[in-house]
């Protein structure tokens, strides 16, 4: 297993959000976290990344227990986070944004370079010298993903990559994820939209009030109208 999450608990202040989340992610797999607003999808991602300190539970990344580590150590260990708000550095150029993400190559993975990333996101190539604040929302999302890939992560954490984007751009995002998958990337995706998830994911887990209530292949979820109605109201 590339990533093993066992009985993860986390919350903000007194509010408990995650109450024992467990799932596995195999190398080369795209897993989607589904669930309503407030179910704990973003919180799971933040707890994995160390942006929120888990109160209990274990997170094994390629063997090491990274639960409770600081974000920069977790990033170095191989989790790459793309935040929902993108958080592109507004005053750095696209090229500089990518440079900030650069980390040494990881054994067994072909290292990412700006050239390879511009091939993945052709729109970005001509925007190299443009400041982050002066590109569109869709382009910012591409920069955010590319910047994280520059760190050669073992697992890519994508938090709602299609949020607030035009449908055509959402299509581009789905294609990019599929392209990454073909290259062997391991992806954990938090998503609201089952439609988007079904295009890219192999497997799905559904969160409800901080617990996993469904876990299985995405095709099984699409076929299981009862579970979809119960957990996702679709």
């Amino acid at each position: 297993m590339m990533l093993q999450v066992e009985n993860l608990h986390a919350g903000y202040g007194g509010a408990k959000i995650l109450r024992g989340v467990s799932f596995d992610l195999a190398a080369g797999e795209v897993l989607v976290l589904l669930g309503r607003n407030g179910a704990g999808k973003s919180t799971t991602i933040k707890a994995l990344m160390g942006l929120l300190r888990p109160t209990a539970g274990r997170v094994r990344l390629a063997g090491a227990d990274i639960a409770g580590w600081e974000p920069h150590r977790i990033a170095r260990a191989g989790l790459g986070w793309v935040p929902e708000e993108r958080r592109v550095f507004p005053e750095l150029t696209v090229a500089e944004n990518l440079e900030v993400g650069r980390r040494p190559a990881r054994e067994g993975l072909a290292p990412w370079t700006p050239e390879r990333l511009f091939a993945l996101f052709p729109n970005l190539a001509e925007l190299r010298q443009r400041p982050g604040a002066r590109i569109s929302g869709g382009e910012q999302q591409m920069v955010a993903i590319a910047r994280t890939l520059m760190g050669n992560p073992r697992v890519l954490l994508l938090d709602e990559p299609g949020e607030g984007l035009a449908p055509v751009i959402v299509d581009l995002m789905a294609e990019a994820i599929l392209a990454l998958k073909r290259e062997g990337a391991t992806v954990l995706l938090a998503e609201q939209s089952l439609a988007f998830a079904s295009r890219v994911a192999d497997r799905a887990v559904i969160l409800e009030t901080g617990r996993i209530v469904w876990d299985g292949a995405i095709d099984a979820l699409l076929a299981d109208t009862g579970a979809r109605a119960r957990h996702l109201q679709v």
């Binding site: 669930g35 309503r36 607003n37 607030g164 609201q192 939209s193 109201q233 679709v234």
Partner: peptide
């Protein structure tokens, strides 16, 4: 302006 951004489909 984007009244439902960030909400789940049912919401």
């Amino acid at each position: 302006d984007e009244p439902t951004a960030g909400m789940a489909p049912a919401e």
